[in-house]
Amino acid sequence: MQVNFRSVKADYQLGPIRARNIIDDVTFSLESGSFTAVIGRTGAGKSSLLKLMNGLLLPAKGEVSIGELELSQQANKKVINQIRKRVGMVFQFPEHQLFAETVGKDIAFGPRNFGLNEQETKKAVQESIRLVGLDPDILERSPFSLSGGQQRRVAIAGILATNPDVLILDEPGAGLDPEGKQKILTMIKTLHVQKRLTTVLVTHDMNDVATYADDVLLIDQGKLVCHQPVRTFFQDNHLTSAWHIDLPEPLRLQRKIERAKNMTFKQTCLTLDELSQMLIREGLV
């Protein structure tokens, strides 16, 4: 499903105070089936951008459209609910939303809310627990008795069970051990391919951007800085240094070699495989 932002502005009302232009005149379009990484400093507005995609935050100006559904300041509840059904959102630390006595019931919460019947719900629960790579035995256990990584998977399963077309994730790897984090991200990538999802991932780790995403969306202080394919983005030395973007490890190594040997390679290597092959080809190893 295509995601479009047209001159979107948004702000938060905090009691009597209004936080101005948290998202400031942002326009972009995500192709159906694309995997986009949203990056930016802390407080840039990444989470707010995600909230705009499923109507948790409504644009003060402009429109957001998901497929043929449209969100604007006047969007009615029905449209918002339809959008939420199409867009699955995994929050930062999603395990904090678990509440039911058993994992199974917790995962069934979303599908039930969206009006699936008992049988469909049961099927969705079974399928999603398998998708996140957990043993179906876990369905009968209390979510509070699981490890952090397992809880996170259960929470993600709860979103997948609603069978969304667009999956948006806010730092799904935050606070996990490196291995657990890679497992979750690999799982997401697999799902993305299998179910032909349109995926949006917020992350602070440029290695993840290079490994998993097709496109990069850089925002700063609520403004869109650029929206480019990953490779084009990391090729642009001016851009990355101007915005203090860390390079993915393989690319950093490449740049170091280039500096030491006083030369530049034509190719930009984003993965270790690419780098090693290039080095062999160039006869450097």
């Binding site: 948790l56 509840k77 609910n81 867009v87 929050f91 919460f109 809310n113």
Partner: peptide, 12 residues
């Protein structure tokens, strides 16, 4: 945050 998360799961 929790309210937002449950809203995203279809609670109205």
């Amino acid at each position: 945050k929790v309210m937002d998360a449950q809203r995203a799961r279809g609670t109205v």
